[in-house]
């Protein structure tokens, strides 16, 4: 037996949140070095917006009407890029195995990935909202709208991390991702988009806002709970 036994350096089971912090720190560090995820997402969003404008034949009035829906569609599309990048990263060089043989709860990985992808997506949304205000002249830049966006993002990413982790382990890899993920999150995006639409009129009807936002919240909680419980089965065989 080694004289430098492991016991002194590992007093007990590692704490959950310290491990979460370690993974989030690592993800942010990688992004700091490459700046790839965020720039990919922003570029992709730009292309999407321009493409949709083309579909509307540069009809500004029509574009303004659909701006809210377009914003959500763009977030969904660009979001898959962030999800895929963040989780494929772990598959490169089998880095995930190194995390899996560490004495940490598997749910640490889930929580950490939800946090880091949510951070990236929120950053993207700030940029997008700014863009949409400029392009479509709609009052997206208000705390309430940003708050609804953030709530929607959490639910989207919470479902996305589970689905993406499975998708990249299949034969078809990321090709499967939108097909699996979009239908799952539409019941979340629908009320969220309705809530934001209320604020576009200038006089939001509060009863509708609260009812739709509570739907979003309910989805967030359910999906987070399901993901938290099911995630160990996603990564472990």
């Amino acid at each position: 037996m080694s004289e430098q036994s492991v016991s002194p350096s590992l007093p007990g089971a590692p704490s959950f949140f310290t491990a979460v912090k370690a993974i989030v720190w690592k993800d942010l560090r990688i992004e700091q070095h490459t700046r790839q995820t965020l720039s990919l997402m922003v570029m992709y969003s730009l292309v999407t917006v321009v493409m949709f404008n083309f579909a509307l034949e540069a009809n500004l009035a029509a574009a303004r009407d659909v701006a809210n829906g377009l914003l959500w569609a763009t977030i969904l599309l660009a979001g898959t890029l962030g999800l895929h990048r963040s989780l494929a990263l772990e598959q490169d060089n089998q880095a995930i195995d190194a995390i899996l043989i560490a004495p940490i709860d598997r749910r640490v990985i889930y929580v950490a990935k939800v946090i880091s992808v949510t951070l990236f997506t929120l950053l993207l949304e700030i940029i997008l909202v700014f863009m949409f205000v400029v392009f479509f002249n709609k009052p997206f830049w208000q705390p309430a709208v940003l708050f609804i966006l953030a709530l929607g993002t959490i639910g989207y990413v919470a479902a996305g991390v589970v689905i993406t982790s499975m998708a990249i382990q299949t034969r078809s890899r990321e090709v499967l991702l939108p097909i699996l993920l979009f239908p799952i999150v539409l019941p979340l995006i629908l009320p969220a988009a309705i809530a934001v639409a209320e604020y576009m009129t200038g006089q939001p009807e509060m009863t509708r806002v609260t009812s739709t936002v509570s739907l979003v919240l309910a989805y967030d909680l359910l999906i987070l709970a399901a993901g938290f419980i099911a995630y160990p089965y996603v990564v472990e065989s």
Partner: peptide
């Protein structure tokens, strides 16, 4: 793996079904 993923997926998708049912009620009531 197929069985495992299918099981996880079915659990996640049922949330979608629950939310769809609830949404119909809530959205229409209002």
């Amino acid at each position: 793996k197929r069985g495992r993923f299918a099981a996880i997926y079915v659990i996640i998708s049922f949330i979608t079904i629950i939310m769809a049912y609830v949404s119909i009620r809530v959205l229409r009531d209002i």
